[in-house]
Design a protein around this nucleic acid. Structure first.
Lengths: 346, 346
DNA sequence: GCGCGAGCCGAAATCGATTTCGTGTTGAAA
DNA sequence: TTTCAACACGAAATCGATTTCGGCTCGCGC
């Protein structure tokens, strides 16, 4: 077990000064070619790598970005992470990921932990509890310290910073329009409570689509799930007391719960009822029937967020006060859950 | 935008020495109670937080652990991460996550990036390409530098270090035994190529279970998928040329592909064929029929790995050379895909 | 009144690297 | 021979915090 090689050790070994070694390794022409080659050869031989911590301290930047997400269970977030990772690594940055588990406290703790020198900036999607609470002090504090933040997906209007969101309202509108197009008359929505920003927006899109097609909105057909853990029974009861021919569900879980509920009632998808979901995850692709769904292009979102953040980091002085909000458009992926009598496809 | 507060600034502001401030904040009795209170009050007021980078440099430890996983798509890995995160945070450590995307090169690059001071140790599951290549230099090098490593799931026998694995062979055996118990006679396995360690072990478990029950092993019923991306057609063809009444698939993807293939042939699960999968993910829980599956207890695995690593970090001098291999037992979760005529349940 | 010890505090080294500035040597030009 | 520039390299400050060690002041005892 050899402890790691430092500049000082190289200097001692070669009987030169530390500064000489440093300069030689960075190819400064202040150092003679001879000495440079000798030092570089030595360094290569013993596999010298500069200590990142020392560099971070000296340069006052860490070259890492912190990502905080509510949960990793949702496939959507994993795709976003992939996007962030790709861009960050390409541009020379590391990525630290922390989970808030949708807890306000853990979100705050994580941010504090990372803000004290560990990262140069943040990419985050706020916890459900944080949205409910409406307390964004930890965000403003970090921003005030001069750390750039990029919010994505679950964003906060009150905070001024770069944001990347998907067009939830329009995505929902497209989904419902698709249901209308294939002939559905009684379309239900299974959504979340309103304080979850994306759920709210998708509900708005649902209403707009119906209005546009002059379909009266039946408030009984709007199901807002409060307790996500036990959504199954609630959805089941909902489907037993309402007759529908189309369902728009704002996530994968609700979609399959709906299908199961319909099955319980003896109804089949897509023969009796058509279903459109949100989030193009494994579940949607592989379910039987495979799910027509609104794809959020998570990787693209992550890439965008990373680019925004790094741009800000590297032009810290230049364009100070301009914040942008990027909107990622969705696309509807048609699959079996809204098709009749078509050959199976994935 | 106020730049962050440092000890030096506090010292200047209060007209004392830097060392006094430092000691006061750490409650050293070298400093009078008066001064201590004054300094602490000031620090609290201006929300002073020590710079982690400086601490890392000084203490020669970063209090963060690096996690490198092949892919985040598999739900299994996300559960492991949750387990790691929980333990690490509880014990005061940060977690950096990097993805290798199953690429050998990216795995090496990530490790080098993190090894130079960013982390105190690693938890990793090696990339598929790395297992295929059999090149583990990057691992030995890091270990030689005195950095502890914990390998999990896809481990490498040639490397001496702590390991956490699940009992793949036994898990597979249980799964196949279950198929035998419910009356299956012709049981197929859909598995991976042999260089993926876990796939190989699960195949061994399959063989053992059959032998134990005196069922002759039909090599035609062993399907090794090479091209995971396009496994669907291969599985489909396999099911058209073989008559089976039970299928053991080594991951979720293969399970649902199999069910789809059976449906294509007009066979139903579980009425005509029973299916057992591996990995207790969202897909298994929510699929219709929901999948009987071998649960790997990923969170438990991650927690174990994190504890092993941190133990090693904190007893660096004491127990140097003792490496343990923890085995996480699996459990079989019975669901609809192996049940006949039972009420739906999740 | 002097000395000694306790109580408080400050200077400086340290972690590992970069960078500015200074210094010594050499050569050539005057 | 003197002087000055170019060249090669070294010393030291710096980033932010900790910690050792040394020193000052005051009070108390003799």
């Amino acid at each position: 077990m050899k402890p790691k090689l430092t500049l000082k050790q190289i200097a001692r070994e070669l009987d030169v000064a530390v500064s000489t070694v440093s300069k030689a390794l960075r190819d400064s022409d202040e150092i003679s070619v001879d000495t440079r080659q000798k030092i570089k050869a030595f360094a290569k031989l013993y596999n010298y790598k500069p200590n990142n911590i020392a560099l971070s301290l000296k340069n006052r930047k860490t070259m890492t970005i912190g990502v905080i997400i509510p949960e990793i269970i949702h496939h959507f977030f994993t795709t976003v992470i992939s996007g962030i990772e790709q861009v960050a690594n390409k541009r020379g940055y590391n990525v630290i990921i922390c989970l808030s588990n949708n807890s306000f406290d853990k979100e705050v703790i994580n941010m504090e932990m990372l803000a004290n020198g560990s990262t140069d900036g943040f990419i985050l999607s706020v916890a459900k509890e944080t949205q409910q609470k409406g307390d964004y002090q930890h965000l403003t504090e970090v921003i005030n310290q001069g750390m750039p933040i990029v919010l994505f997906d679950r964003v906060v209007d009150e905070i001024e910073c770069d944001k990347v969101i998907i067009n939830d309202r329009e995505g929902a509108r497209k989904a419902v329009q698709h249901l209308v197009d294939i002939g559905c008359k009684k379309i239900a929505i299974i959504t979340t409570v309103d304080y979850v920003s994306v759920g709210k927006l998708r509900t708005v899109g649902y209403r707009q689509a119906l209005e546009k097609n002059s379909i009266p909105i039946d408030e009984n057909l709007i199901l807002k799930i409060e307790d996500v853990e036990n959504s199954d029974e609630e959805i089941n009861r909902f489907l037993f007391r309402n007759d529908v021919d189309g369902i728009f569900a704002v996530n994968e879980q609700f979609s399959v719960s709906a299908i199961r509920g319909l099955n319980n009632r003896g109804l089949k998808v897509p023969e009796d009822v058509s279903v459109v979901g949100f989030t193009n995850g494994e579940l949607s692709k592989r379910f039987i029937p495979s799910l027509t769904t609104v794809s959020q292009h998570g990787a693209q979102m992550g890439a965008k967020a990373a680019n925004l953040l790094i741009d800000k980091l590297e032009n810290a002085v230049a364009g100070e006060e301009k914040y942008t909000t990027e909107i990622i458009e969705t696309s509807l992926i048609e699959r079996e859950s809204t098709l009749l009598n078509l050959p199976l496809k994935i």
